[in-house]
Each structure stands twice: as structure tokens, then as C-alpha cells.
């Protein structure tokens, strides 16, 4: 485990050092970005809509019962913004894109394509890792913004349509806008950016270290998804503490 962590830190550092070369890989970044958006947008939309709805459904009746109907929008809005949307989208991307990254790079490692790159003096970190990490680091925050907006709508629909809550659409959004400011959105975006780096580095690391044929590829994909999700949750805790201390 410690060797894996060490290797991931080195991979992250080498990817960071390669950042000035990113303009050379613009085409690949755009391709990867399109791939991520194309694969995840519909799923993100459905997921966010229902999570927003469920959040309103869980918290709404209890709050209304205690005379706190004016804060239903605030609770749903803030929870989605700071916590649910970043974590949920990160988990979605880890499963949907992280697995694809690990599988693609892993298959290239098994079938000697990465060795072929090395013999041509093409650094696999520049060619494979850098575009993917950049693309996911841009795509995940964009998806989080989309998810927050859709989640708010989902919460609003349930709040206004459910008889046990019955908070009008306008009152819901007015409550939401009182609490959710730019800093709250920035908080979610900061988290999603860090989660994206975790997904990119963990998945590419697993892919590059794949050995042992199709079974090895399967193992790498599983490890990439599981390790990414575990790390996202751990990082989320510490990041939340840090951002709270910074009054973010």
C-alpha cells in the first residue's frame, strides 16, 4: 500500500511538472473532455435530480413540522453545493471514467503499447496521463455546477409538489439564495477539483501498473474505482475540515 501511495505521489508530481506541455496535447484533452461529458451528462442529470428530490423529501417534512419551512431551500441548496454534488459526481466519474481510464491504459500496458511509446522516447505520462488528468480536472467541476443546478431543481419540484412539505417554488429558491453564496459554490468546486486529481492519478497509476493479461486489466479497473472512492471520502473529510477552518 505504501509503495502504491509513493508511486502515486511521484506520478502526480511528474504530471504537475509536465503541465507546461499541456498545450501540445490540447487535441487529446478536448477528446477526453468530450468523452467524459458525453459519458456522464445524462447520468449526472438523472442522479442529481433525484438526489435533490430525496434530500427535500427526507428533510422537508421534519422541518415543516418544526416550523422551519423557510429553510428547506437553504438546507437542500447548501448540502448539494458543499457536499452532495461534489462527492456524488466524483463517485460517478470514478466509476464511469476512472474505470475506463484504468482499462484503456491497462490494456495498453498489457499489450506492450506503452513499451512501444517508451521506445519512441514518448513519455507515457505526457502522452496518456497528462491529457486525462487535465480533462477530468476541468470536466468534474463543470459537472458539479450542472449537478448543483439540477439538484436544486429536483429539490424545488419535490418541495412544492409534496403535500407534506408544500413549500412554494419561489419561497424554496428565495430561502436557497439567502444562504448559498458564491463562496459555497466555490467550496464545492474546490472539492471537485481535488477529487478529479485523485480520480485521474489513481486510475492512471492503476492502468500503468497493470500486469497479467485480461485478468490483470479487470483487477486494475476494480482497484482504480475502489481506491478512488475510498480516497475521495477520506480526502473529503480533511478538505471539509480545512475549508471550515478557512471559513470557506
Amino acid at each position: 500500500m505504501f509503495r502504491d501511495i509513493g508511486q502515486m505521489v511521484i506520478l502526480a508530481w511528474r504530471t504537475l511538472c509536465a503541465l507546461p506541455l499541456s498545450f501540445r496535447h490540447l487535441r487529446k484533452v478536448i477528446d477526453q473532455f468530450y468523452e467524459i461529458g458525453n459519458a456522464s451528462l445524462l447520468m449526472a442529470c438523472i442522479l442529481s435530480l433525484f438526489i435533490g428530490g430525496v434530500l427535500a423529501l427526507q428533510t422537508g417534512p421534519i422541518m415543516v413540522e418544526r416550523g422551519l419551512s423557510a429553510v428547506v431551500g437553504s438546507v437542500v441548496g447548501l448540502s448539494l453545493c458543499k457536499e452532495l454534488a461534489p462527492v456524488m459526481m466524483a463517485v460517478l466519474i470514478a466509476g464511469r471514467i476512472g474505470s475506463a481510464m484504468a482499462a484503456e491504459i491497462g490494456s495498453m500496458a498489457v499489450y506492450q503499447e506503452i513499451d512501444a511509446l517508451r521506445t519512441m522516447n514518448i513519455d507515457p505520462i505526457h502522452y496518456l496521463v497528462l491529457p486525462r488528468v487535465i480533462a477530468v480536472s476541468i470536466a468534474l467541476p463543470c459537472l458539479v455546477v450542472f449537478s448543483i443546478l439540477v439538484g436544486w431543481v429536483g429539490g424545488g419540484i419535490v418541495s412544492s409538489a409534496n403535500a407534506d412539505i408544500a413549500v412554494p417554488w419561489q419561497a424554496y429558491f428565495s430561502s436557497l439564495s439567502r444562504v448559498v453564496d458564491n463562496w459555497a459554490v466555490l467550496n464545492g468546486l474546490t472539492k471537485s477539483f481535488v477529487f478529479a486529481l485523485v480520480i485521474g492519478i489513481v486510475s492512471c497509476h492503476q492502468g500503468l501498473n497493470t500486469i497479467g493479461g485480461p485478468r490483470g486489466i479487470g483487477r486494475s479497473v476494480t482497484k482504480a474505482v475502489v481506491n478512488s472512492i475510498v480516497l475521495i471520502l477520506i480526502v473529503d473529510y480533511f478538505l471539509t475540515r480545512l475549508l471550515l477552518q478557512l471559513d470557506f
Binding site: Q112, D115, T119
Partner: peptide, 18 residues
């Protein structure tokens, strides 16, 4: 090694599938 142009033809070809 990068100072020299050393090319390798792999057993499987190792062409990039994409």
C-alpha cells in the same frame, strides 16, 4: 538512451489500437 535512435519491432506489433 534517448541520444540514440533505437527502434523496436515488438512480437505483437504493439500498434496503438486507438
Amino acid at each position: 538512451l534517448s541520444k540514440y535512435r533505437v527502434a523496436m519491432v515488438f512480437q505483437s506489433g504493439a500498434l496503438l489500437g486507438s
